[in-house]
Simulated scan of single mutants.
Amino acid sequence: MSGKFSGFPKAGFDFLEDLKENNTRDWFAENKSRYRETLQDHLLDFIEAMVEPLANITPHFVADARRNGGSMFRIHRDVRFSKDKRPYKEHAACHFRHSLGRDAHAPGFYVHLAPDEVLYGAGIWMPPSDALYMIRRAIADRPDAWSKVLNDKRMKKIFGEIGGDGLKRPPKGFSADDPHIDDLKRKTFFVMHKTTAKAAQGPEFLAEVVEGFKATMPLMHFLCKAVDVPC
């Protein structure tokens, strides 16, 4: 870590390209210092640089630049219950979660780095059933407030529509005639902006992400209120 974010170097994306072709424990062990120097350290610098801007957006979300247990996702995959036994993720990522959230299923902000795409955005990913019900209930009970989120011009300009996989049929207890039935079917609620690895290689990427996070706040306020946490 240098303590200052100056962009994600091309060498880090080159590392991920090579990892995709050599996704084995032996290869990673031989290239662990390369991983740290070209990618991990720069991601930690990015997280550290997000501390103050994120606090200015909302004091309830955490940017934690620890090497383990903080905002940065581990590169190791959990293969215990997967047919895909590749030991490492072929991307790098960080998640700025709610201070009350114990895992990635709480509302949060997200940044994803891969050679073929760089993503940033916010929302809630596959929340547990009780939180999902609370969000659906909030949409059904406050349709005008949800419409205001959907139609926020600044958020739509940067992120487009709210995304997330959903059910084929209306969830139990909700009407198929509800004006927001497509959103009530969702199991995940997020907005995500896609850019390029080249765009992330300059120091201005930090400011771009900060402005993007600011634009997500109508959605984040709604989700946090729905699951009864401050925002």
Rank of each mutant, 00 (worst) to 15 (best):
L113I: 09
L132C: 08
D144W: 01
K156D: 04
N56D: 15
I135E: 04
G164W: 08
D141A: 14
I158R: 15
R66S: 09
A104W: 02
N56V: 11
H95M: 14
P87V: 01
L150Q: 11
G70Q: 06
M134G: 01
I139K: 08
R154I: 07
P128W: 06
L54A: 03
V79E: 00
F73L: 13
M134D: 10
I57G: 11
L167Q: 12
R102L: 07
Y133C: 02
A93G: 12
E48R: 13
F109L: 08
F159K: 05
V118M: 07
H112P: 02
V118W: 05
K148A: 15
R136S: 05
R67V: 11
P107G: 02
R136W: 13
L100A: 13
F61R: 05
G160E: 13
E52W: 03
G166P: 03
F73W: 12
A114S: 14
P59M: 13
K83A: 09
L113K: 10
H105G: 02
G164I: 05
G164R: 10
P87H: 02
G121W: 00
D141V: 04
K148G: 00
L54M: 14
V111P: 02
Y88N: 05
M155Q: 14
I124Y: 04
E52G: 04
F109G: 00
E52L: 11
M50F: 06
P107E: 00
Y133W: 08
I135R: 08
A49D: 07
A140E: 09
G101A: 01
S129E: 09
S71H: 05
K89R: 14
P115T: 11
K157M: 10
V79F: 02
F109N: 03
G108L: 02
N151S: 15
Y110A: 03
H98L: 03
D152T: 01
R66C: 00
P143I: 12
E117H: 12
F81Q: 13
R67D: 08
S71F: 04
Y110C: 07
P107W: 01
V79G: 00
A92D: 14
T58W: 01
H91A: 14
G108H: 13
A104D: 00
T58H: 05
M134H: 07
I162C: 04
D130E: 13
P53S: 09
C94S: 07
G160Q: 08
W125F: 14
A140I: 14
P127I: 04
D130S: 11
P127H: 04
D103I: 08
F73G: 07
H91F: 14
L150W: 06
A49R: 04
V62S: 06
M134V: 00
D152S: 04
P128K: 10
P128D: 11
E161D: 14
S147C: 08
L113W: 11
P127F: 05
K168G: 07
P53T: 06
G166I: 02
K156W: 03
A63H: 08
W146L: 03
P53D: 12
G70K: 06
F96I: 09
